[in-house]
């Protein structure tokens, strides 16, 4: 609606990278959840998933605008969202894998919102004041997403034979991808030292403290950690990402500069 003030900054490449990871996690999960619109099992969940998607896309807009300002090359939120190439997206792989079914979608929302609540809580104190403001706002929204998804994980896991089997299959599929969130890397180390935000690896124990009790209550069996590695946050994406971007970027690629 209005341009956020453009800042002249001397942001480090790690700082921009860190904000982009946050932005792209929100953007790509928001895009995936929007696919449910009109297709959810019941109308209440259709509304819920669309609303969660809206919150995430709204957060992505703020974060992409901020990343564009930090970068200082005049790229706005639309250019950041729609005109980058696949290798420039910094979301973790978990966000881009297909929705599959309501079980996998719900479980991914649970893993993601549990992580975001912990991360936003830390980022409220970021030395980057714009990021701190975005964190304070996003935290309120993420708490609702976490309540919603954790209730559903328990209902589905500790539900019928079919819902249990589907949610267990979703857990077996998604669990290896969650390791990527906490993999140590130079960007996180530099950011933790700078006071902009925590290294994501430092949140692993707290994250497990949130998710494991819920998975237990849902009677789901957590798989063992495997050497499986994914590299979405370094820009190396799965085969699903190109298809997602083709859908998401279609309008801007076909009609460059088009506006509503």
């Amino acid at each position: 609606m209005v341009a956020t003030m453009t800042q002249q900054t001397t942001a480090t490449p790690e700082h921009i990278e860190y904000v982009l990871r946050l932005a792209d996690n929100a953007l790509i999960l928001g895009q995936r959840l929007s696919e449910w619109c009109g297709h959810a099992p019941v109308i209440e969940e259709d509304l819920a998933l669309a609303n969660i998607s809206l919150d995430l896309v709204g957060q992505a807009r703020l974060l992409l605008t901020h990343a564009g300002n930090l970068e200082g090359k005049g790229r706005d939120e639309d250019q950041m969202a729609f005109l980058r190439v696949e290798r420039d997206y910094r979301n973790v792989t978990m966000m881009e894998v297909p929705n599959e079914d309501f079980g996998r979608t719900t479980l991914r929302n649970f893993f993601s919102s549990a992580f975001q609540v912990l991360l936003w809580e830390k980022l409220v104190k970021s030395s980057d004041s714009e990021l701190a403001a975005i964190a304070a706002k996003s935290l309120k929204e993420a708490r609702y997403h976490l309540n919603h998804s954790s209730e559903w994980v328990i209902r589905l896991g500790d539900g019928t034979e079919v819902s249990h089997a589907k949610t267990q299959a979703a857990l077996d599929y998604l669990w290896p991808y969650t390791a990527e969130l906490f993999a140590a890397n130079p960007t996180d180390e530099a950011i933790a030292a700078s006071g902009v935000g925590p290294a994501w690896s430092s949140l692993e124990a707290a994250w497990e403290g949130v998710v494991l009790p819920v998975l237990g209550e849902a009677t789901l069996v957590v798989p063992a950690r495997t050497p499986f590695k994914s590299y979405g946050k370094f820009g190396r994406h799965s085969e699903h990402m190109g298809h997602l971007l083709a859908t998401m970027q279609y309008m801007q690629r076909t009609y460059p500069g088009a506006q509503w």
């Binding site: 809206l54 995430l56 706002k137």
Partner: peptide
């Protein structure tokens, strides 16, 4: 803004 993704934000500004 109320919520980050509130679609009413632009109409309100206008």
């Amino acid at each position: 803004p109320t919520y980050s993704g509130c679609p009413a934000t632009e109409v309100i500004g206008l």
